[in-house]
């Protein structure tokens, strides 16, 4: 039985016995190749559910729109970390959720009308192929997670550059930003009811879509996700102008891991580093 069929069977059961009133999963996109999110409310809609290596979207973001509603959701391992993040931050309720976890073989670079066998960059260095939280698991989890020595190779390369080189690189990248906020809208960790960029008083950043303002936006976005990014890399995938956001996210992820021995979303209980205070913590010297 393929993954899609296992998901459809479970989803149909959940809808029919009214455990949940909606199953959030994936269906085929209009190009006939890729996938897109599906909200299935009726048994006949459940029939459209699929799962394959094109199912890139992190559906956990949608739970923020269904906080009080009983919902089943299909999650890959990275997406399951987003659920833990949102549980940890008291944004969603565990008893409203039925989690269909998928042991993930990695997602390909397939985009609209563009088929690719190659895994997305984040999947090539993924060390979590089994969901960290689920009620029902489909797929075969690997016997052990791979130890990937080169997970931060591009981050290390960036760190190896001079401050001037890094500034020139990021100025060029941010100059392209059109402030569509797709990176924010797709991110399960971005759920402020009023984002700092939309706040008028105090005004943190002007509306101008220009290098200076873009830099403020992109930098603060990354910092707000330090210790919270669960590495689904959806922000980078959706960026219409290809800004390499994962370089920033993973740099901060690496810092938090080294300083606090913490990885976001691995469980729902461990207090987040920036939501706790420990007397013994000493601010490291900055060289």
């Amino acid at each position: 039985m393929d993954l899609g069929e296992q998901i459809r069977n479970k989803a149909k059961e959940l809808i029919e016995i009214e455990t949940v009133d909606c199953v959030i999963g994936y269906e085929r996109a209009t190009d006939g190749v890729g996938a897109r999110p599906l909200f299935a409310y009726k048994p006949e809609e459940v029939d459209r559910l699929i799962f394959d290596q094109t199912c890139t979207h992190n559906l956990a973001k949608y739970l923020l729109n269904r906080k009080d509603k009983a919902t089943a959701i299909v999650v890959k391992p990275c997406d399951s970390r987003a659920i833990n993040l949102l549980l940890n931050e008291s944004q969603i309720q565990r008893d409203k959720l039925f989690i269909i976890g998928v042991a993930c073989p990695g997602i390909t670079k397939t985009g609209l009308n563009n088929t690719s066998e190659e895994l997305q960059a984040a999947c090539q260095i993924c060390q979590q192929h089994t969901p960290v939280i689920y009620d029902f698991l489909v797929g075969e989890p690997p016997a052990s997670e791979p130890d990937i020595a080169e997970a931060y190779a591009d981050v290390a390369a960036m760190e190896g550059q001079s401050a001037e080189e890094r500034r020139a690189f990021w100025e060029e990248q941010f100059s392209r930003c059109i402030r569509c906020y797709a990176c924010r809208q797709v991110c399960p960790g971005c759920y402020c009811t009023e984002c700092f960029v939309e706040r008028l008083d105090p005004l943190w950043v002007g509306i101008r879509i220009a290098p200076e303002e873009n830099e403020v936006w992109n930098t603060i976005r990354a910092f707000h996700l330090a210790g919270r990014c669960i590495a689904c890399n959806e922000c980078e995938r959706v960026c219409p102008v290809n800004i390499p956001l994962s370089l920033l996210n993973r740099k901060l992820e690496e810092e938090v891991r080294e300083l606090f021995n913490f990885q976001a979303g691995m469980d729902a209980e461990t207090p987040a580093p920036f939501a706790t205070y420990k007397k013994e913590e000493v601010f490291p010297e900055i060289g």
Binding site: R36, P37, L38, F39, K61, Y62, N65, I178, R179, C180, Y181, A182, R184, Q185, V186, V238, P240
Partner: peptide
Amino acid sequence: ADRCIHCNICSYV
């Protein structure tokens, strides 16, 4: 709108 993430990509492209 269930599926839409309400970014501004469509408007800006």
